[in-house]
């Protein structure tokens, strides 16, 4: 018996198919991935290294060299004393402004969009599809077209240049994509659940809060990620609608980096940039899985 087995194992395919460790395909795949990863990581490396150097060391010009003497002074300066135009308080005011803008914008836009999506997928009314199409169309109109009218509208409403103004603007511009996200998610839930709840006598809000919401935690996480990163990275709306005292971090960063007078403090600029990018970066880092799911869920269907 053993003879036969050995003979079989030696000549003919038998049992589990052997795996080659370094197949050409694998080498190619990993090769490309590693090169791509390096390509994208290199700028970050330069930024971190530069931000940890003192100005004399930067002037030597070896931008890829690790710092000889590590200093955190640029970070401290960027945070608390770098000059943004007239004031020299660092970008921390911008950070807290961004937080004050992002939190209400994220909460309000998601609340409205989730109810929108729920109504559009489960409580279809005459013209609901048209309504949805118009809403979606909004996502494809360039912002520039809407800026001037919006400036006038917010001015007339008396909220131009206020925190309320910028929150309203973010809520409006988040609506198309978030509604699409929620509508598609609610459409993917079995319609019988909704019917069963109606037979059980539950109304619009009760079905939303007691049946739909507990089933949609993943899509809420996705929406929060989309909104937080989107609003945090916003520059255009912030600079136009927020007003000087509410400038978000991105605008403050621009003012630090582009300030005309004096020498360019590359280390401070790098530190300020990393600080500004830290929030979205951390979110992407910890929620990559949900973020990809969100993009997939946002794909148009139905």
């Amino acid at each position: 018996m053993s003879d036969a087995t050995i003979a079989l194992a030696g000549s003919e395919p038998w049992g589990k198919r052997p795996k080659r460790r370094f197949a050409p395909k694998t080498i190619m795949l990993y090769g490309v991935l590693i090169v791509a990863a390096l390509y994208y990581l290199l700028p970050l490396y330069v930024m971190i290294v530069t931000s940890l150097k003192g100005m004399p060391e930067i002037r030597l010009g070896n931008i890829f060299a690790p710092p000889v003497e590590i200093t955190f002074e640029p970070w401290v300066k960027a945070w608390s004393s770098a000059c943004t135009g007239l004031y020299c308080e660092g970008i921390r005011t911008g950070f807290w402004n961004s937080v004050r803008i992002a939190i209400p914008s994220v909460i309000i836009s998601i609340l409205i969009a989730s109810v929108n999506g729920y109504a559009l997928s489960n409580w279809k009314f005459r013209g609901s599809e048209v309504f949805f199409t118009i809403l979606l169309f909004g996502a494809f109109i360039p912002y520039q077209v809407m800026l001037y009218p919006l400036v006038i509208i917010t001015r007339e409403l008396g909220i131009f240049g206020t925190l309320t103004g910028i929150v309203v603007i973010h809520t409006i511009f988040g609506m198309p994509i978030l509604t699409l996200l929620f509508r598609n998610y609610f459409s993917s839930l079995p319609p019988e659940l909704f019917k069963a709840a109606r037979v059980d006598g539950a109304g619009f809000w009760r079905i939303f809060f007691q049946i739909m919401l507990p089933m949609s935690v993943p899509i809420f996480v996705v929406a929060v990620i989309l909104q937080v990163t989107g609003i945090w990275n916003d520059f255009l709306f912030g600079v136009i609608f927020a007003g000087t005292q509410n400038f978000p971090m991105t605008v403050q960063l621009n003012n630090v980096v582009n300030s005309a007078q004096g020498v360019k403090e590359y280390n401070v600029n790098m530190a300020a940039t990393i600080l500004t990018g830290a929030v979205p970066l951390i979110i992407y880092f910890f929620s990559g899985k949900y973020f990809v799911r969100g993009i997939a869920a946002g794909a148009v269907k139905g």
Binding site: P190, E192, L193, K195, A196, A197, I211, M215
Partner: peptide
């Protein structure tokens, strides 16, 4: 319902 439609 065919799909039971129990609240999960």
């Amino acid at each position: 319902f065919q799909s039971y439609a129990l609240y999960p």
